[in-house]
Amino acid sequence: MFANFDFSVILTSLRYLFLDGMTFTLTLTALAAVGGVVLGTLIAMMRLSGLPVLPQVAKVYVNFMRSLPLVLVIFWFYFLVPYIGQWATGAERPIQVGAFTSSLVTFTLFEAAYFSEIMRAGIQSIPRGQAAAASALGLTYWQSMSTVILPQAFRNMLPVLLTQTIVLFQDTSLVYVLSITDFLGAASKVAQRDGRLVEMYLFAAVVYFAVCFVASLLVRRLQRRVAIIR
């Protein structure tokens, strides 16, 4: 069944797959993860703030994002971002936005909802006495958050945040629906061009599996170390 399996098509396209495709995938993953964690943390803080309205706004945002399929959100932002750009810059017509920018905005805003739930659990896992002690020392809300609560919450939740980042890495493959050349998009383009679907999709699967499997092993190792320290 693999008699006419052609390895050479993989070998000759390696440069394209990794230099173009995987670079896009990893850059998008890294930037969206950082953006998502920052925004997610702010949303979590809003949600736990106890101020009027803000917690409700945060909750609606999170529940809204989490009830939509990512594919639909990708389409939404693909069409919406040019208009937002127009509104923001005051241009006359919807501005041209590159595929990368559009994806980055999408994934940052989408993943922020998921990261915020993780950070919320992280903040709630810190004993109330810590915040009380920080206030007693005269720290302001922002000081106590940034120097006492968040560092601990972040540390406790690091394995979960990283696991979510692995999910994000897999999710970026969905930019395929915008015909973007991420890793899967690159594999797919070679597959279509050379009529080598079997080779290219299997290879893509193997690469994704290897990256995610190794990454998840590392996360598990980290988890054990964090668990011992605490």
């Binding site: 897999q170 395929y176 899967l184 679907l197 999709y201 893509a204 699967a205 998840s216």
Partner: peptide, 24 residues
């Protein structure tokens, strides 16, 4: 491990495009 570490979209393609080719 197998099903969790491969993106769903890639799994879709494997079932849809690859499976019919590698079967008898």
């Amino acid at each position: 491990e197998l099903f969790r570490n491969v993106p769903l979209l890639v799994q879709m393609f494997l079932w849809f495009f690859v499976l019919p080719e590698v079967l008898p």
